[in-house]
Simulated scan of single mutants.
Amino acid sequence: MSVLITGGLGHVGSWVAYQLAKQGKRIIIADMAAGHFDRLGLDYLEEVRDQLVLESVDVLDYHSMFELMLRHRDDLEGVIHGVSVIAGPHFQQRPFKHISINATGTLNVFEICRILGIDKVVNMSSGAVYGDAPGPQNEATPYKATDLYGATKISAELYGLQYSDTYGMDVRNARLFFVYGPGKRPSHMHKVYQALFGPLEGLDDIQAPNGSEQALDWTHVHDTAAGIVKLFEKDSVVHRNFNISSGVPVDHLQIVEHVADITGKRASVTLGPGPFVVRGTPLDITLAQQELGFTPKFTDIREGIRDYWQWLKANAD
């Protein structure tokens, strides 16, 4: 059987693809970057390359998505939807484009699955659905949109829940939080991420406009992917929304100190005042632990940072 992953070459999606492929599954990756896979530097996917089917497609191109999923329908056990524009200061610069990708792109996937009879869908959502509600937030915490990104994630979740209720589909929402780790170079990320993790890549003199007055439960990408895989593989679930994170908040300035200690070098890093994005923390992962058996490995972020550093050194340009 096969699993189709939209955004399967993204940071989280690529590790979900890897973990499922290591279990022997055939993975269909629907990603606009598929045409230049060899230039993405995703070394871990090379290990399972023979089990990957790469399809270059835009989730906003409904007809191409439909044709792709129709071709693979008979072998599909389900879909993991991971295409998303991440939260950050750039999101509001092109609101229509980014909202369309996150909301309409998700709706396209649900509708195609409905028509083709593909019932099982895991939607990669976000802890942004809680907005600035104080933590710890569990899955019963009410929706609260405090930015456009969060609004897109709430709408996508509601689409999925209503498709489940109306058409008998099995749509599950994985509420992810801030992710770091192998597969993404700090130099390709926003300034706050660069300030926190950039020295692992050798970056120096990093000036971020904000983020110093915040603690977030940053989650190693291996743990994030493992939670999504567990949610997908669970035969049946009682609940439909699950927090997937480390569950452990860490102060941003402490992360800077950990990175300096681990690398043995203190880079010039400045985080400006205030939060990066307004979020409560942490996500309460009790439900995922109890119902899915989800157990994050890197709850000590220092271990996660060391792992990230090893990957960056092994994949230095």
Rank of each mutant, 00 (worst) to 15 (best):
S164G: 13
N173L: 12
L196H: 08
A174L: 05
A140D: 15
D170F: 01
Y163K: 10
L176Y: 12
R172Y: 14
G198I: 09
L161S: 11
P142I: 03
Y149M: 03
T146K: 06
K144I: 02
L158F: 06
Y143W: 06
S155P: 00
Y143D: 14
G198D: 08
M189V: 00
L148Y: 12
P182A: 06
P182I: 02
F177A: 13
T166R: 05
P182C: 08
V179Q: 14
S187D: 13
P182E: 06
V192I: 15
L200A: 08
H190F: 15
E201S: 10
Y180L: 12
Y143K: 04
Y143I: 04
A140H: 14
L196Q: 06
D204M: 05
L176E: 09
I206E: 01
P182R: 10
P142L: 04
Q137P: 01
L176A: 09
L196S: 10
D147V: 02
Y193I: 00
H190N: 15
Y159R: 04
Y167D: 02
T146W: 01
A174T: 08
F178K: 00
A151M: 11
R175A: 07
H188A: 10
G183I: 02
D165I: 00
A174M: 05
Y167Q: 05
F177G: 01
V171E: 02
S187Y: 13
S187M: 10
D165N: 14
I206H: 04
E139R: 03
P136I: 05
G160C: 09
D165T: 04
L196T: 14
K144N: 11
Q137K: 12
L161I: 14
A140G: 06
